[in-house]
């Protein structure tokens, strides 16, 4: 987008999830995106076999946040040898839940007329950040106090050259909302909130010091294992 235009959330480029040699010639690459509040798995299917492929279907294993296909896989026509087709598969978050390791791991089964194939992929937790994740300021202060300090995780984010306002704007495109900003001893302290699709809240303090390319990120969340994934998202959003 141009100056002042929202650029939307960052989407990781597609990577190969299922190499053709492991799937009798079917190659699958993909990524995840949240577009206008709807989660999508974006897929490219390539037929590297010598015969036509058809009758595609997809299924997910139970996973940490209940991700499930919200409809069938829309492969419009049989896929000819050397042909690639691209599609977006809308996802719901009301599927069966089972805690995965890592938390953001997703096990997928894809079938076609030849066989059934399995692969695992990992989604950025930011696809689960909902649009109404701006916490009331009063609630933020109470919750921040309420979560004990030993549940606080701290991370450094290096080589970041945005000022705090630019960082805040970029994070908001990914549904990370700045609730308050204070400047103390030359450091901008941003207090931010995130809400996941399953109702889990994440509270964040981001410290940005003018001229210092290393940000300090402090994350408080009652589900402590979410913090590391939130850190990964900050790295991804702030550096792309």
């Amino acid at each position: 987008g141009g100056v002042g235009m929202p650029t939307g959330a960052y989407v990781v480029p597609k990577t190969i999830w299922l190499p053709a040699m492991k799937a009798k010639g079917l190659e699958i690459s993909g990524t995840f995106a949240r577009r206008a509040g709807v989660l999508h798995m974006e897929l490219s299917l390539t037929n590297k076999a010598m015969s036509v492929m058809s009758d595609f279907a997809v299924q997910f294993n139970r996973n940490s946040f209940g991700l499930a296909p919200a409809g069938p896989l829309q492969v419009v026509a049989p896929l000819n040898p050397n042909q690639t087709t691209e599609m977006g598969l809308p996802l719901s978050t009301v599927g069966p839940v089972m805690k995965m390791e890592p938390l953001n791991n997703l096990q997928v089964a894809v079938k076609n007329n030849i066989d059934v194939f399995y692969f695992s992929c990992q989604y950025p937790i930011s696809i689960l950040f909902v649009e109404d994740g701006k916490m009331e300021r009063q609630v933020f202060l109470a919750t921040w106090k309420d979560i004990p300090n030993d549940s606080e995780a701290q991370y450094q984010i290096k080589d970041c050259h945005l000022n705090s306002d630019a960082a805040s704007a970029r994070l908001q495109s990914s549904n990370i909302f700045t609730i308050a900003k204070r400047t103390v001893d030359g450091q901008d302290m941003l207090y931010q909130s995130i809400k996941l699709t399953n109702g889990i809240w994440v509270l964040v303090e981001l410290r940005v010091q003018t001229g210092n390319p290393t940000y300090m990120l402090s994350v408080k969340c009652r589900a402590a294992e979410v913090s590391q994934l939130v850190h990964q998202c900050y790295e991804m959003v702030l550096k792309n």
């Binding site: 202060l141 921040w144 204070r182 103390v184 001893d185 302290m189 207090y191």
Partner: peptide, 20 residues
Amino acid sequence: ELEDGLDEAFSRLAESRTNP
């Protein structure tokens, strides 16, 4: 008044985090 109180509370939080 509540808003003022919240502004003040965030200032205190930031201050306490920087100079504990």
